[in-house]
Simulated assay, not measured.
Amino acid sequence: MSILSGFLYPPPPSAIITAMTAISSGALVYFGLSEAWGKHLQYSKFWNAGSGPSGEQIRVSSRVGMLLLYTPALAAAAVAFAVPAVVADDRCRLLALALALHFFKRDFEVLFIHQYSGNMILDSVIPITLSYFTGTVCMIYAQYLTQGMPGPKLDLKVAGEVFFLVGITGNFYHHYLLSKLREKGDKTYKIPKGGLFGLVICPHYLFEIIIFIGFCLISQTLYSFLFALGTLWYLMGRSYATRRWYLSKFENFPKQVKALIPYVF
């Protein structure tokens, strides 16, 4: 904790943030382990990979489901600009702007970039939606509670802006590459190519992690730090499962391509 205190604000005296820090981190770790163990949230290529019947569960179109994932978090970040105390504080304002841009980009991709091949189960949509929404609200609220506290010894706002811009650009670019794999109406899966796909099968996840590191460095709160760690853990599990899926479906999948981190994992 003495090391963390050099670049994090002291934890605020808030039972809500303390509880949500534990809940959010624990949930992301659980879902990351579940993905790695083969118990998937049922969307995308893992639609039929999860255990248990899904015939009687409520389904929504993939486009609607994806909008449900991101729009509440976008709304939460946008509403924060109506709070004078948020707008008046540099870190609060910058964090809310970065969160709003991230989820606006995700909604833009849902509407104009992504190609869809099926439906989503509502039971899988709800926990992800809640995670993004509560994560956004709690990051901004935790930042708001730092007002009047002594700042960290290292001011990492600028580094956070750089990480965020690199992450959001790389994430968008690799989502664009994924969207170009299939022609309209084509529902077959292909091995992605271009960008960092020659090194890892999930570069879009890698850049999403960089985005959340950006949030953490802009914010420098314990909540944003642990949420970024939880996101890293979840996407490690998700990327591991994705690589395993490609290995099972494509005999010619290049074995040197890692899951998430080039040459490492």
Rank of each mutant, 00 (worst) to 15 (best):
F81T: 00
M120W: 07
S25V: 04
W47V: 07
V125G: 01
G26N: 11
R93L: 11
Y30T: 08
G52I: 15
S61Q: 03
H40R: 04
Q115A: 14
L122Y: 12
N48T: 01
F103W: 04
L111H: 10
S61I: 15
C138D: 12
M66Y: 10
G38T: 05
M139F: 12
S62R: 06
V29I: 02
T134I: 13
L69D: 06
Q42D: 02
S34T: 14
V86G: 00
I23E: 05
P127F: 08
V64N: 01
F108E: 06
P127S: 12
M139K: 01
T134E: 06
R91A: 05
L95Q: 13
L111W: 09
K45F: 04
A142V: 04
I58K: 13
I121H: 04
P72W: 10
L41F: 08
P53M: 14
V86N: 02
A142M: 11
W37I: 12
S62I: 13
A49P: 01
S24H: 14
L94P: 00
V79E: 04
A75H: 08
Q42E: 05
T134G: 08
L74P: 00
F81G: 01
A88G: 03
W47H: 13
G50C: 06
R91I: 02
L99V: 07
V29A: 10
M66V: 07
L111Q: 08
C138F: 07
I121P: 00
T21Q: 08
S34Q: 14
A98G: 04
L41W: 04
N48I: 06
Q42H: 07
P127V: 02
T136D: 08
L33M: 09
G38L: 05
A80Q: 05
Y43C: 02
G135H: 06
G65T: 12
A96C: 06
D123Q: 10
S44Q: 06
Q57A: 13
